[in-house]
Simulated assay, not measured.
Amino acid sequence: MALEPEELAAARDDLGAELRELRRAAGLSGDRLARRCSISQSKISKIETGRLTPTLVDLDRILTALGATAEQAARVLQRAKLANTEWQDKRTLWRKGLETRQSELKVLESAASEIRFFLPTMVTGLLATPAYIKASLTHSPGDVSSTVAKKIDRQAILREGTRSFTFLLTEQAVRWAILPPGGMAAQRERLLEVSRWQNVRLGVIPLGVLLPRGPMNTFTVYDDRLATVEIFTGRLAFRDARDVKAYRELFAMYEEHALFGDTGRDQIRAWGRS
């Protein structure tokens, strides 16, 4: 299914409109529907007008109360999947300011208890040295000094001890040279240091390891409520429970093939010598 940005933006309104039409076809007022499914009338109104995206549990209760057919329910659930997907294009992120994105990420990280990062191409900002962060932003427009500072500031969350982090890096992510040899050596030392912290698990996947699925995109999973996926032109955010579950399962598959602890650290050191 192609996820056009315009389609994603309209999905919430379309979902609300379809639920409203189903309610009217069932001959129910918003108040009667609310009583039938034990959801407040104000919440029903917000869902129908596109001001609120319903959870899958809410949808199940509403569709049951409406006596929706299997075909109607499938159509509504497909719209719900789109409504729970957000597209952020790179140009919009640049217009808002990259430092704004760092503030948003800090809020996401602070609200989560378990965060999983799959890094097939490069080191993420939470693990990066200042030099690596600056080099990774050379393609970005304008002065990036504020963004670099905010990325470094975000790293403090790794030492708070109130949440757990798992980072999976492929060999390419560790070895991709965006700095001269001395800078990359410092970056490897940073990975070795962070890998020893109490609430951090850092695993590496060497080239040549037999994997059933290729590492296509960088993605991050926040608990069981949100998954974000990065591509060259922007970022997708998935809130549909089925999508988040799929990314958690994908992460678990890669995790089974990663090297952790002393074995992983030995591998990072070996890459530095080769």
Score class of each variant (00 low, 15 high):
Leu82Met: 12
Ala83Pro: 04
Asn84Arg: 15
Asn84Ala: 12
Thr85Arg: 05
Glu86Pro: 00
Glu86Gln: 12
Trp87Asp: 09
Trp87His: 15
Gln88Val: 02
Gln88Cys: 00
Lys90Asp: 05
Arg91Asn: 08
Thr92Met: 10
Trp94Ile: 05
Arg95Trp: 05
Gly97Trp: 01
Leu98Thr: 02
Leu98Asn: 06
Glu99Gly: 11
Arg101Thr: 13
Arg101Ile: 08
Ser103His: 10
Ser103Asp: 15
Ser103Arg: 15
Glu104Met: 10
Val107Ala: 13
Glu109Ser: 04
Ala111Gly: 06
Ala111Phe: 00
Ala111Gln: 11
Ala112Lys: 01
Ala112Gln: 03
Glu114Gln: 09
Glu114Val: 03
Glu114Cys: 01
Glu114Pro: 00
Ile115Glu: 05
Ile115Gln: 09
Arg116Lys: 15
Phe118His: 12
Phe118Tyr: 14
Leu119His: 12
Pro120His: 11
Thr121Phe: 13
Val123Asp: 09
Val123His: 02
Val123Ala: 07
Gly125Met: 06
Leu126Tyr: 05
Leu126Trp: 02
Ala128Val: 04
Ala128Thr: 02
Thr129Lys: 07
Thr129Pro: 10
Ala131Lys: 13
Tyr132Phe: 15
Ser136Trp: 07
Leu137His: 04
Leu137Phe: 08
His139Val: 09
Gly142Ser: 08
Asp143Leu: 09
Val144Gly: 05
Val144Lys: 10
Ser145Cys: 03
Ser145Phe: 02
Ser146Phe: 02
Thr147Ile: 06
Val148Tyr: 06
Ala149Ser: 13
Ala149Tyr: 01
Lys150Phe: 03
Lys150Asp: 09
Lys151Thr: 05
Lys151Ser: 09
Lys151Val: 10
Lys151Phe: 03
Arg154Trp: 03
Ala156Thr: 13
Ile157Thr: 11
Leu158Tyr: 06
Arg159Pro: 00
Arg159Asn: 14
Glu160Ala: 15
Glu160Arg: 14
Gly161Val: 11
Arg163Ala: 14
Arg163Thr: 06
Ser164Pro: 00
Thr166Leu: 09
Phe167Arg: 04
Phe167Leu: 08
Leu168Ala: 09
Leu168Glu: 09
Leu168Tyr: 09
Leu169Asp: 05
Thr170Phe: 10
Glu171Met: 03
Gln172Glu: 14
Ala173Lys: 10
Trp176Ser: 11
Ile178Gln: 07
Ile178Tyr: 04
Leu179Ala: 09
Pro180Phe: 02
Pro180Arg: 10
Pro181Phe: 06
Gly182Tyr: 01
Gly182Phe: 00
Gly182Thr: 10
Gly182Cys: 00
Gly183Pro: 09
Met184Arg: 06
Met184Gln: 13
Ala185Cys: 00
Ala185Glu: 15
Ala185Trp: 00
Ala186Lys: 11
Arg188Phe: 08
Glu189Ala: 13
Arg190Gly: 02
Arg190Pro: 01
Leu191Ser: 07
Leu192His: 02
Leu192Trp: 04
Leu192Lys: 02
Glu193Met: 11
Glu193Leu: 13
Val194Gly: 06
Val194Ile: 15
Ser195Tyr: 04
Trp197Cys: 00
Asn199Pro: 00
Asn199Gln: 12
Leu202Phe: 05
Leu202Ala: 08
Pro206His: 11
Leu207Tyr: 12
Gly208Phe: 07
Gly208Asn: 04
Val209Leu: 02
Leu210Ile: 09
Leu210Ser: 14
Leu210Gln: 14
Leu211Trp: 04
Thr220Trp: 01
Asp223Thr: 04
Arg225His: 11
Leu226Phe: 02
